[in-house]
Simulated assay, not measured.
Amino acid sequence: MDTVHPVEPRPQLRGLGVYAPGMPIEEVARRYGLKRIVKLASNENPYGCSHKATDAVVREMTRASLYPESLGPELVQKLAQKAGVRAEQVLIGNGSDEIIRMLSRAYVHPGDEVVMADITFPRYQTNVRIEGGRVVAVPLREGVHDLAAMKAAICDKTRMVFVCNPNNPTGTVVDKKALLEFIRAVPEHVLLVLDEAYIEYVEQEMLDSIALLQEHPNLVILRTFSKIYGLAGLRIGYGFMHPAVVQSLIQVKDAFNTSRLAQAAALASLEDDEFVENCRNQNAQERERLTKALRSFGLEVYPSEANFVMALVEEDGMDWFNALLKRGVVIRCGAQLEANPHTLRISVGTPEENDFLLTVLQEVLPDLRKETMQG
Score class of each variant (00 low, 15 high):
Leu222Ile: 04
Phe225Gln: 03
Lys227Thr: 03
Lys227Ser: 09
Ile228Lys: 00
Gly230Met: 03
Leu231Lys: 05
Ala232Val: 09
Gly233Trp: 07
Gly233Glu: 09
Gly233Ile: 04
Leu234Tyr: 13
Leu234Asn: 05
Leu234Glu: 08
Leu234Met: 13
Tyr238Gln: 05
Tyr238Arg: 08
Gly239Phe: 00
Pro243Ile: 00
Ala244Tyr: 06
Val246Phe: 02
Val246Met: 03
Gln247Leu: 05
Gln247Trp: 03
Ser248Thr: 08
Gln251Val: 01
Val252Asp: 10
Val252Ile: 12
Lys253Met: 11
Phe256Trp: 14
Asn257Val: 14
Leu261Pro: 04
Ala264Thr: 05
Leu270Gln: 05
Phe275Ala: 00
Val276Ser: 03
Arg280Met: 04
Asn283His: 09
Asn283Asp: 09
Gln285Gly: 14
Arg289Phe: 04
Leu290Pro: 06
Thr291Arg: 10
Lys292His: 15
Ala293Tyr: 08
Arg295Val: 09
Ser296Pro: 07
Phe297Glu: 12
Phe297Met: 14
Gly298Ser: 08
Glu300Cys: 13
Ser304Asn: 05
Glu305Ser: 13
Ala306Pro: 11
Phe308Trp: 11
Val309Cys: 01
Met310Trp: 04
Met310Thr: 15
Ala311Ser: 09
Ala311Ile: 05
Leu312Phe: 06
Leu312Ala: 14
Val313Lys: 03
Glu314Gln: 15
Glu315Trp: 02
Glu315Met: 12
Glu315Thr: 15
Asp316Met: 06
Gly317Arg: 02
Asp319Arg: 14
Ala323Cys: 09
Ala323Ile: 08
Leu324Tyr: 07
Leu324Met: 11
Leu325His: 06
Val330Gln: 02
